[in-house]
Simulated scan of single mutants.
Amino acid sequence: MAGLSAAVGALAVATALAVGVSAVGAASVRSARAAGAADAAALAAADAASGAVSGVPCERADQVARAAGADLAACELDELIVTVRVRVGAGPFAAEARARAGPPPGS
């Protein structure tokens, strides 16, 4: 019986570790997706703000964020500089990222 108890305990510990590692991995993937979506959305909005492409900057950012599987949480336009914040996932498992795009300072 002692061997069975030890085996069950070892299995429980292994299962708990596997669940923990999976959660960390999923959070890492969500974070990377959010960062990529924020970068793409900010660049698309900056292109629209500069006139390189047609459209309203924050609407462009929303379109690109949704195409990347994210929700646009905020979009701020300061002349040609656009700052966006996107969210991937929901609740306590959501990941947020922020990105900024526009011409370099002094140009």
Rank of each mutant, 00 (worst) to 15 (best):
V19P: 01
A34K: 12
P104N: 07
L17Y: 02
V64T: 15
T83W: 04
E79S: 09
I81C: 04
A38F: 11
A14C: 13
S54V: 03
A45Q: 03
A48P: 01
A23G: 15
A34N: 05
F93C: 00
V82H: 05
R85Y: 02
A90M: 10
E59Q: 13
P92V: 05
A94S: 12
A70K: 11
S31L: 06
A52P: 01
G36R: 05
L17W: 04
V88D: 08
V53K: 01
R60D: 02
A68G: 14
L17S: 15
F93Y: 06
A101T: 02
D47H: 10
A49V: 06
P103F: 08
D39P: 03
S5A: 13
A40S: 11
A61F: 05
D39V: 00
A26N: 06
V86S: 10
A14R: 08
D39E: 04
D78M: 00
P104C: 01
R100Q: 09
G102N: 03
R85S: 14
A68R: 13
P104R: 11
A37S: 14
R87Y: 06
R100M: 05
A67M: 08
S22Q: 11
D71Q: 14
A65C: 13
L11A: 15
A48H: 03
G55D: 05
G89V: 00
A35P: 03
P92I: 06
V88T: 12
E59N: 07
V21T: 11
V29E: 08
A40R: 05
G91V: 02
L77V: 15
E79F: 01
S50V: 07
V53P: 01
S5G: 13
D78C: 00
E59C: 05
C58E: 06
A101R: 02
A6E: 12
A90H: 11
V84P: 08
S31D: 12
A70C: 13
L4G: 09
M1D: 07
L4K: 02
A14P: 05
R85D: 12
E79T: 11
S5F: 11
R98T: 14
T15Q: 00
A68C: 12
V88E: 04
D62R: 14
G91A: 01
V82W: 03
Q63L: 15
L43M: 10
A73Q: 15
V8L: 15
D78A: 14
S107A: 15
A41G: 00
R33P: 01
A61Y: 08
A38M: 10
A35I: 07
A90T: 14
G91E: 02
